[in-house]
């Protein structure tokens, strides 16, 4: 009686599947509860990974709801990489597909925020753009290509995403307003920080990330948001160290 890996795996995430025959106790009795140790280890460790990875979603849902949804998610989407730090990339879409959560329309974007914070935490180190590097002829400036720092992430939301994050993480923060908000994630040193972006700045940063010049990115942002204010966007990006240095030599 052999037990293949596929047979062992089959019953791991399915509590109703029978324990494979051929797994035994010391006396040769069927493994029963002994097999359940592996079942429990796998489910608990994956659910814990999600709870660590999605603190905002966990806060919004409460521990019981979050645990129930996590169990469902880990069965439907077991990890496909050994790097557990990035587990849960499909969690936002998964949450968006749960009918009973339809009244919490902002939940998928909150999951995207949690995901972006974690990606930023593990992103490559970089040297931030020094504002002094931009002191040049305005004509040259328009042709400059500025790249977001490796740890920079931008989220566009039709929900008050920044307010939701702040209200659920900061004591005494104001209640979320009914507005659409774009959020910049930046990592000044080691800890990623969400920052509320001025209107159009997300489109501007996106254009820069796609390799457009400052002039082209400004045009793209103006097409997105008619009253886009370049100086406000640039000042937010510089203050939060969201752009990479122009220096070619990036050795630390």
């Amino acid at each position: 009686m052999t037990v293949t890996e596929a047979q062992f795996r089959e019953a791991l995430l399915d509590p109703d599947a029978p324990v494979p025959a051929g797994l035994v106790s010391a006396t040769g009795a069927p493994a029963g509860a002994r097999y359940s140790v592996y079942r429990n280890n796998v489910t608990v460790s994956l659910c814990q990974a999600l709870a660590t990875a999605f603190p905002l979603v966990a806060k919004l849902l409460g521990p019981e709801n979050f645990a129930g949804l996590s169990k469902l998610y880990v069965r439907q989407h077991p990890p496909t990489s050994q790097l557990m730090m990035f587990y849960g990339t499909e969690f936002p879409e998964f949450l968006g597909g749960i009918a009973s959560l339809a009244h919490l329309g902002y939940l998928p974007d909150c999951a995207r925020l949690d995901l972006a914070l974690r990606q930023s935490y593990h992103a490559a180190d970089g040297v931030a753009l020094d504002p002094a590097e931009l002191q040049m002829d305005p004509a040259l400036l328009a042709g400059l290509r500025l790249a977001p720092a490796p740890a920079t992430r931008v989220l566009r939301s039709s929900w008050p995403l920044f307010d939701l994050w702040r209200y659920n993480t900061e004591a005494g923060a104001p209640k979320p307003r009914a507005v659409a908000q774009d959020v910049l994630i930046t990592r000044p040193e080691f800890d990623p920080v969400p920052v509320l972006l001025p209107a159009g700045a997300a489109a501007w940063l996106d254009a820069l990330a796609r390799g457009m010049t400052l002039g082209e990115a400004n045009d793209a942002a103006l097409r997105d948001t008619a009253d886009f204010d370049l100086s406000a966007a640039l000042s937010t990006a510089l203050q939060t160290k969201s752009l990479s240095t122009l220096k070619k030599d990036k050795t630390l």
Partner: peptide, 12 residues
Amino acid sequence: ENYMGDGGRPLA
């Protein structure tokens, strides 16, 4: 596996 990110605090 905890040190296979690209940078940040863990590697520092």
